[in-house]
Structures are given as structure tokens and as C-alpha cells.
Design a protein around this nucleic acid. Sequence first.
DNA 1: CATGCTTGGGTAGTGTCACTATCCAAGCAT
DNA 2: ATGCTTGGATAGTGACACTACCCAAGCATG
Lengths: 216, 216
Amino acid sequence: MRLAELSTRSGVSTATIKYYLREGLLHPGRRITATQADYDEGHLRRLRLVRAMIQVGRIPVNSAREVLAALQDEELDRNRRLGTAVWALPHGPAPDESDPATDSARRTATELMDRLGWCYGGPSGETPTAPAYGMLVTAIAALARLGYPCATADLEPYARAMERIAATDLDLVERYGTPDEQVEAAVALTVLYEPVLLSLRRLAEAEESRRRFGGK
Amino acid sequence: MRLAELSTRSGVSTATIKYYLREGLLHPGRRITATQADYDEGHLRRLRLVRAMIQVGRIPVNSAREVLAALQDEELDRNRRLGTAVWALPHGPAPDESDPATDSARRTATELMDRLGWCYGGPSGETPTAPAYGMLVTAIAALARLGYPCATADLEPYARAMERIAATDLDLVERYGTPDEQVEAAVALTVLYEPVLLSLRRLAEAEESRRRFGGK
DNA sequence: CATGCTTGGGTAGTGTCACTATCCAAGCAT
DNA sequence: ATGCTTGGATAGTGACACTACCCAAGCATG
């Protein structure tokens, strides 16, 4: 398959594919002549994954490259590959340590983790705090600054719901046979179910609001 | 309070505050002299909301302006104000109608809504499909193109979880007294709980993965 | 009252990001 | 031989969220 065909089959312009090749999100094709290269189904699949991560999952190109690199790092076992990949996902601004609300938020988050019995360490297990943990602290601090309640008890129902979601996620992942497939599936499902969750939440809120405040 | 004090109290640079004033995210201060203006606690509060929406909630400046405009539109009742505000939140690319996966995704989404008994219309009730609905269709289609299962039955547990989350959200909102406060709270909680949910999900996935695949 | 610093408003510039347009030589097709 | 297509490289584009600079008006200080 040549570049033009890869483009039509994926719906991505040749210019953009060339950009992804330059950025290392896609392996170079097999060179046929000095001016032609051959791409296969693997390229097509990877290209679709890249597009979905960037456009639907809103992952920056640089992060996508890191995630993909982690996916195929032969040095690592399955767990670490997955952990490293999720580690590379964007996670917003770091907590603002100069703000006292951050300290308070960090205490709330730690208390929540304790109550749930969660570890929040990295893939290597040496408990460098996960990026998602910083993301949580930042969000709790922002809510606190605005005067919205965010005590451990307020967060617990959300955490419990996410516990069930995570179990469902991993059930889906375990449908896949090989570790390689599982790791890719885990990343794809983590990233692409995010918009699914957020949109379902907004729809559910609209529905609940309609039910509570009159159905007209 | 003058601009400089607003800046130190909020932690936002004067240049950025001036930018927000220009963009209409913040009302102009009360003019004292030709070169001085006075800002109050309301400005500080609004500024913190704007910052949180943009930095933590990752809302573009233009969308934030629309959301805030809807919040204080005196023409509308509470439900419509809220609906209009949530309507203005970013919702990713529209579904790609030229792709057959989109048709299939739309059928899946409709079936899901039916099974849950949800409406998916707008705040005005005339059922122009909600932006969140398009967001859902886009995500399902992307998953389908990658070969990941996304049948109605796969989505239902996620939707059920979000149903409970939405109920919790609205319980929090109902703590607030006046409709004005409730509308602001609803938007703030919708936007700022999104990173909370996503980070909790990633932490829960890490925890669940640790439990299933060995805790070392 | 002169001097110099600060203030708020306006304009123009910056860095990042995700592409996109253009150019070029090599090749294939007729 | 001629002209179109291909892949690679370089430079440019438009959106975005600021950010730096300039200016005239004010206040503060000796």
C-alpha cells in the first residue's frame, strides 16, 4: 500500500500522515525505491489508533508518541508497559504548592486513598505519586478555592463508582488474548472511554435534572 | 480593590486579567478616575471560576465566555440557563457522517438511550440532539473503527454508573439556596468534577490491575 | 511644584500546537 | 520525451492563550 492509499483508507490527508511519520507516531514504510514506500495493515491500524487518541481522546501529539513508545517497549513486562503508557497521558497542571488550598486538598486525597485501600504509586511500585494523583489534588484544590465542598465523604461515592468502572474496563481488556493486544486494548480503552464517560455523565445529568425539576 | 490587588489575591497576572477583561470573561471594574478602576469580591470570585474552568477544566476561553453568559442570562429560567451553559461546553469533533461506523455508532447510542429511558434533547425540549450525544457517537465510532467492542450491553454498566454520579451531582447542587447559586454550582461541579472523575478512574484502574496481576 | 514611579487601557508580539502548502528530485506511464 | 505522481524536506498557517511594551493620567515625595 502506498501513502496515497493509506490516506484514502484512513481518511487522513497525506500531509498529515507525513507529519506523523516525521514525529515518530508511525513507523516509516518499507522503502521500495528512492521515492516510494510500502505500508501495510499494521500502519493503517496504528494510524487509526493515533487519530483516535489525538482527535477523540484529545491527547497531544508528544504525549501520544510517548504512550506508543511505552506500548511497544520490549524491555518492560506487561504491567510496566501499561503503567508507563498511562503515566504518559496528559494530566493537567501540577498542584500549585504555594497555595494553602493545595495542602488541604492533598490531605483530603490521601485520606480518600486510605479509606479505599488504594495505593497510588507508579508502575514500578516505589510509590512515586502517580500523575493522576496530582490531577486529583489540583482539581480538589480548585473546587475548594471556589467554596465547593470536597470532603473525603463527598468524593467517596465518585471513587466507588470509578472502582466499578475500572473493574468493567479490565474485564473488557481480559477478553483479548495476547499481552500485546491487552496492553494496546488497555490504553485504547482508557483513553477512548473518557469521552464516553463524560458524555454519558452530561446526558445523565440532563435526564436527572429533567426528572427533578419538571419534565417539560 | 485595584487591579494589582485582584492579581495578587487571585494569583493571576495583571496582564492576564486585562486579557480576560478584553475577552469579556470578567466585567469591567467601577471606574474611579480616568486611569483607575475598582474591583470587588464578585470580581475575585468570578476570576477564580474563570481560571478553574480554563486551567483545570480545560475549557477554551471562547467557550468559557459563552458558558458564563448563559449563567447570568436573566431572560432564561434556571433549567434553561443550566442547559444552555452545559450546551456551550466543548464536545470534541462532530461525528464523521461519511463513515459507516458513525451510522452504526448512532444506532448503538440511540438503543442505549432507549434502554435507559433517557431523553437526549436540548434545554428547550424540542429535542435538537445534545452536543454530548454527538460526543458519545464520535467516541463509539472511533472505538468501533479500532475493533473494540462497544455494543449497547458493553456501554450499559458505564451509563448506569453515570446515572448514579449524576444523582450525586444534583444532590450536591441542591445544597445551595438560591437558583443563581445553584446554576453556578451546577456548572462548576460539572466542569471541575470531570478531572476528578478521570483521575479517580485511572487510579482505580491501577489499583484493580495491581490486584489482578500481582501486587509487586 | 517638579520628578519619577504606578496604574489601567490598548496594541502588537510570543510560543505552542497541529497541521498544511510548497518545492524538489526521482520514478512510472504513455 | 513528456508529463503526472510519489515521497521527503522545509517553511508557513491559523488558532489559542497569553505577554511585553507603550502611553497618558494620576499619586506620592521631596
